[in-house]
Simulated scan of single mutants.
Amino acid sequence: MTSVSLVAPGDAPLTLPVAAAPAPARVPTARRYLMCEPRHFAVEYRINPWMDPEQPVDVELAVRQWRELKGVYEALGHRVDVVEPAPGLPDMVFAANSGTVVGGRVLGSRFRAPQRAPEAEHFRRWFEANGYPGVVMPERINEAEGDFTWTGRYLLAGTGFRTDPAAHAEAQEALGVPVVSLRLVDPRYYHLDTALFVLAEDLVAYYPQAFSPGSREVLAGLFPDAVLADERDAACLGLNAVSDGRNVVLPLEARGLAAEVERRGFTAVPVDISELRKSGGGPKCCTLEIRD
Rank of each mutant, 00 (worst) to 15 (best):
G280A: 05
S181W: 08
A25C: 08
R162Q: 13
A20N: 02
T149N: 04
R183Q: 13
M92P: 01
F197M: 08
V177A: 15
M1P: 06
V83P: 07
T151C: 07
A258Q: 11
G131Q: 10
G238V: 06
D202S: 08
H122T: 04
Y132K: 02
F223A: 05
S109M: 11
E84I: 04
A200T: 03
E173H: 10
R32T: 15
L288N: 03
L69Q: 10
S109F: 02
T287M: 14
V93S: 02
E60R: 12
A144E: 05
V218A: 09
T149L: 14
W126S: 00
E145Y: 02
G108N: 12
L237H: 03
V218W: 08
S243K: 00
S109R: 01
T149V: 15
V136G: 07
G134W: 03
V180E: 02
G238I: 02
V106H: 01
L155R: 08
A229D: 05
A174Y: 07
W50E: 02
E173S: 14
R277H: 03
H78G: 06
A96W: 00
A229W: 07
F266I: 13
E139S: 13
P114W: 04
P208N: 05
P133Q: 10
T159I: 13
G265Y: 04
P270T: 09
G103D: 10
N247K: 08
Y132G: 14
